[in-house]
């Protein structure tokens, strides 16, 4: 339980600080911006409804990402239609990725290629694999990731191993560039 109720301003600052990352993460897992917005909105609503129980500014981010991970995995498992990340990108109203396709200096073209390759590679992972790989790359320990997904440490390690192996195969040329 939170020691003292947080003020509206503190909670608002927490929302502002986390919402961009939360939305990007949900879009990455779902591949659809509209659905991601609904999921993130829902997760915030549920956490904020219990703001008197949790210390959201301090502990809320982990809870938020845990809630988003579960909601997205459940959502993906029951979704009938699959919409590709590219479609979501178009839906989001034309962003920097789309803009880059006009006149491209070589570096931007390479970046564009990299973005497309990472999106495609992530899109090939199962939702739990993608969640584990993404959460791990955010700096969460494997124990934390296992806790967030409510799975065993061994299971989390296996998901991470398989997810990374698949990504490494797909992204080998870019990884070799980076290692150099």
């Amino acid at each position: 339980m939170a020691d003292s109720p947080r003020s509206d301003d503190e909670l608002d600052a927490w929302i502002v600080a986390t919402i961009q990352r939360a939305l990007a993460y949900a879009i990455s897992l779902l591949g659809n911006r509209t659905e991601a917005e609904d999921v993130v909105h829902d997760c915030y609503s549920r956490l904020l409804a219990r703001a008197d129980l949790y210390d959201l500014p301090n502990d809320g981010t982990k809870l938020l990402f845990k809630a988003i991970t579960h909601a997205c995995i459940n959502h993906t498992q029951r979704r009938k239609r699959s919409i590709e990340w590219q479609a979501a990108e178009q839906q989001s109203g034309g962003d920097a990725l789309a803009d880059r396709s006009a006149v491209q200096p070589p570096q931007q073209a390479m970046l564009h290629e990299l973005e497309a390759a990472v999106d495609a590679a992530l899109g090939e992972l199962s939702p739990p694999q993608r969640a584990v790989v993404e959460l791990r790359s955010m700096g969460h320990s494997l124990l934390e990731v296992a806790e967030m997904l409510e799975i065993s440490h061994v299971n989390a390690r296996m998901l991470l191993h398989r997810g990374r192996a698949r990504l490494a195969t797909r992204l080998r040329p870019f990884l070799q560039e980076q290692v150099k």
Binding site: D12, I15, V16, I19, Q20, R21, L23, A24, Y25, I27, S28, E37, V40, H41, Y44, S45, L48, S92, D95, A96, L97, L114, E115, V118, V133, E134, R136, S137, M138, R164, L167, A168, L171, F174, L175, Q178, V179
Partner: peptide, 29 residues
Amino acid sequence: SLDRLLADHRERAEQRIDASALLQRVRQS
């Protein structure tokens, strides 16, 4: 190296995404 690649990718995605509409929705809610 893979984690760095994904982290950079996520950062670029975050910069592209405009979450202001969602923020307004959460606040109004």
